[in-house]
Design a protein around this nucleic acid. Structure first.
Length: 466
DNA sequence: ACTAACCCTATGTA
DNA sequence: ATACATAGGGTTA
């Protein structure tokens, strides 16, 4: 498919307000794919800038005639009905959207007319919330935070919490249980490949596919080359409700989380129907400011989904529903609390619900109404310890010196890494697993019986209040 | 309130 | 270099 592209647009934004490369890979979203751009509208310019390092600024288009030339890294995301492609420089974010060339091009036309991508970006990155004042607030309230940020400099700049689609967020973090970021990424991308709608791939972008509203009226679909790269959207709840979901996900490496996801998809779809709303609307009803209740109440609602405990519920609340004050406490954050905030580690090494509450409350008190945002900064600080200065937790496993991790390490590329890399860089190949969506007898669905009540998540005493 | 079991993979240790 | 143990942004029963 030869995508329809919007013009390249620009959103002024200081790097201190958003550090794209960091935020998109900080473990909030697992679906952003990075590309080293090779496109240039002018060969001479391409040759000139090709060797430049990614950090090199001011290699801005000296030739302002065509601004589509790009070098360095770009980020792409299958976003509902479009693929959004982003690139950051010192001045801000360059963005464009790619649409499938499917008549009548309504979404594309709307984007051309009024830039429907911009509000998406503003919402997703929560740009109505300036970051600088928050950093100042946290530094004032927390000496350790201040010290850490000052010591690490630019590396910790521009780290903010995303406002993601709550459905994708829910499923993604169900996958996160007892798991690592690499595998979560692999799993999420696999399910998109299998069940998500195909969208244009950024490498198939070409300047000639940028249209105007007037030219759009006469546009005829171009013949699609057989093997144009594709990207995928995240599958909607209805795509994960069939009984084939569990076995499929197991095949995709989801392990014991597979049935949780099928169950939760059914729970959500049934619940929404019951309340005469849509799945997304239901989740949105749990948003801070909209939800009729406090954080604890929203958390409880989220924990009704299977595979969602306290920590995952906090992640969904923070990363997709506007509960900016919550601090998801996992083993990692727990260790940070012990190490840096003199949290009593005493006897219990296990992270019990009670301890969970104490840590969360403590950090909320310390950091204030945006505690979850502050946590994200410190979490990243530990995620990839800086190799340069004296980091508080330079895991002793690393030896300094050797620039390369020995020949053996280099050579041994396991399948897992290769497939991950392959998927992230080249989603074009259809590795789609066939799924038969056999609708198991929808015969006269009980008007009120519904699966919802019958299969209510057990083990969670919510109504019975112990 | 505590604990083992859970799918699977990377990394560390013998 | 191969075998074994442990942990990874937990949750369930």
């Amino acid at each position: 498919m030869i995508p329809l592209s919007t013009p390249l647009r620009f959103l002024p934004l200081l790097p201190s307000e958003l550090q794209l490369a960091t935020v998109l890979k900080s473990g909030q979203s697992f679906r952003w794919a990075r590309f080293d751009t090779v496109h240039a509208s002018k060969p001479d310019v391409a040759a000139e800038t090709a060797g430049a390092a990614p950090g090199a600024e001011d290699s801005k288009p000296a030739l302002e005639a065509k601004e589509q030339l790009v070098q360095g890294e770009e980020w792409a995301f299958g976003w509902g009905d479009r693929t959004v492609v982003l690139r950051q420089d010192s001045q801000g974010i360059h963005y464009r959207s790619l649409y499938p060339p499917i008549p009548p091009y309504a979404a594309y036309a709307a984007d051309l007319k009024s830039d429907t991508t911009l509000p998406l970006l503003k919402s997703y990155f929560q740009l109505d919330t300036p970051l600088a004042p928050l950093y100042a607030e946290w530094a004032a309230k927390d000496a350790h935070f201040k010290k850490k940020v000052e010591a690490e400099g630019e590396r910790l700049e521009g780290i903010r919490v995303l406002n993601q689609d709550p459905w994708e967020c829910l499923i993604s973090f169900i996958c996160s249980a007892n798991n690592n970021i690499s595998r979560i990424t692999l799993m999420v991308n696999r399910v998109c490949e299998s069940l998500g709608a195909p969208l244009p791939h950024p490498t198939s972008f070409h300047p000639s596919t940028i249209h105007t509203l007037s030219s759009l009226s006469t546009l005829t679909p171009l013949p699609s080359p057989p093997s144009t790269p594709v990207l995928y959207a995240f599958p909607p709840p209805s795509a994960l409700t069939p009984s084939s979901t569990d076995p499929l996900l197991r095949e995709l490496g989801f392990g014991y989380r597979a049935p949780f996801i099928e169950w939760s998809a059914n729970y959500l779809v049934d619940l929404a129907e019951e309340q005469k709303t849509t799945p997304l609307e239901y989740l949105e009803s749990l948003r801070k400011g909209k939800f009729d209740g406090d954080l604890g109440g929203a958390r409880e609602k989220l924990m009704e989904f299977k595979g969602v405990g306290r920590k995952v519920a906090d992640c969904v609340a923070l990363f997709s529903l506007g509960w900016k004050e919550t601090v998801p406490v996992d083993t990692h954050v727990f260790q940070i609390a012990i190490r840096d905030y003199s949290f009593p580690s005493s006897k219990t090494t296990a992270l019990t619900p009670v301890l969970h509450d104490r840590v969360c409350a403590r950090l909320q008190t310390l950091w204030g109404p945006h505690a979850g945002w502050a946590q994200q900064v410190l979490f990243f600080a530990d995620l990839k310890p800086s190799s340069g200065s004296a980091s508080p937790s330079p895991s002793p496993k690393k030896r300094s010196g050797s620039t390369t991790p020995s020949a053996t390490t280099t050579v041994v590329r396991n399948k897992f890494e290769e497939e991950l890399k392959e998927i992230m860089e080249n989603p074009g190949k259809r590795r789609r697993v066939s799924v038969k969506v056999e609708l198991k007898e929808e015969s006269g669905s009980e008007s009120e019986g519904k699966v919802t009540k019958a299969v209510k998540k057990s083990g969670k005493t919510k109504k019975a209040a112990t």
